[in-house]
């Protein structure tokens, strides 16, 4: 079984996986990072979205072995250094952008990817970008509001966006 090395949330990690081990299973079972969730088996719900080398990826739809040497960021890596909520996370709390919390890690990671590509998205652009993230609780209303608020906050204080 292959050994793989990743930089996970800025830290070097390694582990032994089967070829068939999905990234999400390596994160959850191999590394104990259970913040990334599995909500479907067809690559559609987006609860498992993480960033690989700076772009969003569905971690249930990629093999860990494919990513040897990659930089991976998960929801566990999204808070500020002092442990306080990052801008997007804080916006989700402020605007009630989550209820049961299960889809939330994927929503936050997708929102982060969006705001990296487009710092001032319209409501329509946000909704379009969330096409691969399903939420059953919020009706999306407050998720959209949260992302709008995060964008505004980042644009108001560009340092926070770093």
């Amino acid at each position: 079984m292959p050994d793989i090395n990743l930089t996970l949330n800025g830290q070097a990690v390694s582990g032994t996986v089967e070829n068939r081990t999905l990234l999400v299973d390596f994160l959850r079972e191999g590394l104990g990072k259970t913040g990334t969730h599995v909500g479907c088996d067809t690559g559609q719900c987006g609860a498992c979205v993480v960033h690989v080398d700076g772009v969003s990826v569905k971690s249930c739809n990629v093999f860990a072995v494919e990513l040897d040497g990659s930089k991976v960021t998960t929801i566990e890596g999204m808070a500020n250094a002092d442990g306080s909520l990052g801008v997007i996370q804080q916006a989700f709390q402020d605007h009630h952008g989550l209820q049961c919390g299960f889809c939330t890690p994927g929503m936050v990671m997708t929102a982060a990817a969006l705001l990296k590509e487009n710092s001032d998205p319209s409501e329509a652009e946000i909704r379009e970008y969330l096409d691969g993230n399903i939420c059953r609780c919020t009706g999306y209303h407050n998720i959209v509001k949260s992302i709008q608020a995060a964008a505004a906050e980042m644009n108001a204080s560009p340092v926070a966006a770093e």
Binding site: R28, K33, T34, G35, T36, H37, V38, T74, I75, E76, M78, A79, L85, Q89, F92, Q93, L98, C100, G101, F102, T104, P105, V108
Partner: peptide
Amino acid sequence: DVRFLTGKGKYTAD
């Protein structure tokens, strides 16, 4: 929300 937003929620599968 804080635990859900930081990946610290404890769902049964976790």
